Computed example of a mutant assay.
Amino acid sequence: MGCSGLFLFYWSVIVSLAAIAFADDYDNYFLCRYVEDKGNYTANSTYQANLNRIVSQLSSPTQFNYGFYNLSAGQSPDEVNAIALCTGDRTQVECNSCLNRTATELMQRCPWYKEATAWSQFCLVRYANRDIFGQLENEPRTCAFNPKNASNPEQFNDGLIELLNNLSNIAAAGGPLRKYAAGNLQTIYAAVQCTPDMDEQNCTACLNYGREELSKCCKGRLGCRVLRPTCILRYESGPFYQTAVPPPSPPPSPSGREGLARAPAPPKLLKFNNFFYFF
């Protein structure tokens, strides 16, 4: 092999290794959307400094909080409010990694907008220059689907509708700290989740909108993700979720009788509470 041949061989090896490293670091599920009419911020502005503070907090949260974070930085008119949510089956290490990468990539790929949302495989991150906590939001939104179609689409859709209806009811009925459900019906696997700042009515509404959107975007597809600011729906033809992280046990009542004491009111940095897993 001549010098040119050796060069091409080693160059191909280097490119291949770089591609593998990039693939390990890149989330193919990442999508971001911005709200154009909410305004822009400029480089080195106070808003950008506050946004950087938010991203720094999400990069390495010291508390797990069962994957839900409600953060703010700065004061009006440059205040930044953010919500971040990991899927209910992720550990603290997995959640921290997803939030770090997603928040950083959101600023890089949807820059200069004061309101934006990003969804990755295991988490979502959104920020705005207004109060977004507890607000049912319809925009921005998107969906992504598997290009392959089910071999028997009518039967597949019937099973999917039944599964998503059951999961949506369970998730919406979750407590104020966790609204997540996952399970399967034969070979259809699905998971739904609302940000737990949604009450039962708003979570139900968000998931209903999501199922309507799913029927338009993904009908008959073997897999799909419907991504909204306050809820997500996903289904696949094979398993994609883990056993969910168990919630904390409720504190005992003063009388010593278990199961009757109410959990304390959630702080601003919220934790998950009720956990539901549907089979």
Results as ranks from 00 to 15, higher is better:
L164V: 12
C86Y: 02
D197E: 13
M1T: 06
A84T: 08
Q193F: 01
L260V: 15
G134Y: 02
A205Y: 00
T117H: 07
F278P: 01
F272L: 12
C95N: 04
S168G: 12
D25Q: 14
Q201V: 11
E162M: 12
L163A: 02
T62D: 11
C110D: 03
K148Y: 05
C3M: 14
D78W: 02
N138T: 14
C98S: 11
I132S: 00
S12F: 06
C217R: 08
V55A: 07
S4A: 15
N274M: 05
E94N: 10
L136I: 05
Y10P: 01
A118V: 05
L233T: 04
Y235D: 04
L214R: 01
A205K: 14
T117K: 01
P229W: 03
G220E: 08
K219R: 14
W119C: 06
C231S: 05
R53L: 13
S237A: 14
L270R: 09
M198A: 08
N273K: 05
T117E: 04
R101K: 14
R234C: 04
T104M: 09
I188Q: 02
E139H: 12
N70G: 05
T87W: 02
T62C: 07
N184R: 15
N165L: 12
Y209S: 08
E162V: 10
K114D: 01
G210C: 06
C218R: 02
D199C: 08
A116S: 15
N52V: 10
Y189H: 13
E213M: 11
D197W: 01
N138D: 13
A49D: 07
N146W: 02
A181G: 12
